[in-house]
Every structure is written in structure tokens, then in C-alpha cells.
Nucleic acid binder design. Structure first.
Length: 272
DNA sequence: CCGGACGCCTGTCGGC
DNA sequence: TGCCGACAGGCGTCCG
């Protein structure tokens, strides 16, 4: 499910409820995630205050006690804060219980997500160490993208989704940003010129900003910390619209496959 | 270093 | 109605 806008929406919703609160208990109902929830996690969390909740790439970083609780939502993970937690349902994995009785619950049917402990400094953690710049980092600009794609023969869409080059851009927003920048997804990255890459950078930022403003995208099961869906899927130009008319020129949106992921584009607006 | 394929899981949907 | 394969928002790992 979640790309950067959904993770960021979750971060904001969760932060409003848990920053400054003390963790009084941790209940692990099902530790089977991408990696097992560490058995000693409770020791690292219980009795400590959540000092900050940050985001790096699609990882949520809870600054707690002597380190960081690292949470990734994978494809179907969600975090919700409950004042009065309802009965657990299938695929609920973990509850963090706070001193005001609020509960932060992690739910993840496909179990591609993760809940791990990282000692300081968190940036040195193996999962974070090789990540490229954030899309809103000034270091991510047209010149940078131009430089790192000169020797890349693979498709520009794959480069955009390569977390070593830039983080946070998943399949939906890669398709949308490339449409807005009028670049075909399958274009070899090295063939895209500097000015077009500068355009791409600004379109990546634009589409992510707009998606965050709409609370992200809800395709099937994404909800934010309060259980609310996002609405940005209503603003898609191409994602999931194969066979439907382009919102700009009316020609039919095409579908192809890059790697194992679906690509969508307009054959007229996005020149080869 | 680069690029592609695979695997991890469950749920849903379309076609027969 | 039932079954079966394809596919889904991610990404670490392995191999050439």
C-alpha cells in the first residue's frame, strides 16, 4: 500500500497522538512480519517516552529511550491509534499501550512490513544506510538526477523507483510523475536530458505534495492513523487507467510491464 | 556497480 | 457457484 504520501500521512496522525506520551506496555500478538518482531523490544520501549516521530524514506522512526523503533508498512501495513481499542482482528500484530490508555496498533495482512529496534545512530542501520536523498531534499535536483543516470541503460521509471537514487517514489507516484513530466516510463534513463530531469524532479515533488495534502491514496485497504482513507486516487492521470481516455488529450491510456510492475502512460502526451 | 529475477505473504478479482 | 491464475501500494537478496 503505502508510498511516501501514505507513510507521511500516517506519521502526522500518529505523531499528534503519541509524542510526549509514555509507553506502559507492548503486546506482540503475532511477531511474524518480514523479520520477526524482536523478543526484547518490550524492554527497550516500556517506561520510555516517545520523543519524536520522524520519517526516512518509507520508514517511520519513533525516537524512544536509547534508540529508535523502526516501522515499515510494507504493502499492506497500517498503524492506527485508538483511544478505546476495539477487539483484535485477524492480522493485528502489535499493540503499543500508552500512559493515557491510547493504543497504537500495527495491522498487516501480507506481513511484508517490519517492526525493529535500531540503536543510535539510526542512519547507520543496514536498512537505512544505502538510501538516497529524500525527494524534498534540495540535494535531489535535476543536476543530481542527470549525474546519477548517465550510465543507466535501464528504464527511467526503474531509476526513479531505485531507493539508492531517491527514496519514497513507488509504483503509483512514479507513473504519475512521469506522465506529468511527459516522459515515457520505458525510456532508457541515460536518454533523458538534463532539463527534462529537472522537470521530473519538480513533478515528483508536486505529485507527492498533492497526494500528502489529500491524505494519500486508498486503493483497497490504506487508512491513516485515525482510520480515514486518502483521496488522491481520484486525481490519478494514468495509474490503473489502462484503456480509459487521457485526461489531457483523450487518447487511451496504455499499459505495459517494467520489471514486474505495471506501467501506465499516454502514448500521445508522453513521447517516446 | 548494474540489472534482472525471485521470494516473502494474503486477499481479491476476472475468466472459465 | 467454484476453482485457478494473475495481480496488488515494497524491497532485501541473490546471481550473472
Amino acid at each position: 500500500m503505502p508510498e511516501l504520501p501514505e507513510v507521511e500521512t500516517t506519521r502526522r496522525g500518529v505523531a499528534a497522538r503519541v509524542i510526549g506520551r509514555r509507553i506502559v506496555d507492548l503486546q506482540v500478538y503475532d511477531p511474524r512480519l518480514r523479520w520477526p518482531v524482536p523478543t526484547d523490544l518490550k524492554d527497550r520501549l516500556q517506561g520510555y517516552i516517545v520523543e519524536a516521530l520522524e520519517r526516512r524514506s518509507k520508514y517511520l522512526l519513533f525516537r524512544i529511550g536509547l534508540g529508535t523503533l523502526l516501522v515499515h508498512l510494507g504493502m499492506t501495513g497500517s498503524l492506527r491509534v485508538y483511544s478505546r481499542p476495539p477487539a483484535r482482528v485477524r492480522h493485528d500484530h502489535v499493540d503499543l499501550v500508552f500512559d493515557d490508555d491510547a493504543v497504537l496498533r500495527y495491522h498487516d495482512p501480507r506481513r511484508f512490513g517490519a517492526m525493529l529496534w535500531a540503536p543510535s545512530p539510526v542512519d547507520a542501520h543496514p536498512l537505512l544506510r544505502s538510501l538516497g536523498p529524500e525527494p524534498f531534499d534540495p540535494a535531489f535536483d535535476g543536476d543530481y538526477l542527470w549525474r546519477v543516470t548517465r550510465s543507466r541503460t535501464a528504464a527511467i521509471k526503474l531509476a526513479l523507483m531505485d531507493s539508492r537514487l531517491v527514496v519514497g517514489v513507488g509504483n503509483i507516484y512514479a507513473n504519475e510523475a512521469l506522465f506529468r513530466a511527459a516522459i515515457r516510463p520505458a525510456t532508457p534513463a541515460w536518454r533523458v536530458g538534463r532539463s527534462r530531469l529537472t522537470r521530473l524532479v519538480s513533478e515528483v515533488r508536486a505529485v507527492l505534495s498533492e497526494a500528502i495534502a489529500k491524505g494519500g491514496s486508498t486503493l483497497r485497504d490504506y487508512v491513516d492513523a485515525g482510520g480515514e482513507p486518502g483521496y488522491f486516487q481520484l486525481n490519478y492521470y494514468v495509474y490503473g487507467r489502462a484503456g480509459e481516455p487521457c485526461r489531457i488529450c483523450g487518447s487511451l491510456i496504455r499499459h505495459s510491464r517494467l520489471g514486474a510492475r505495471s506501467s501506465f502512460y499516454c502514448g500521445r502526451c508522453q513521447r517516446p
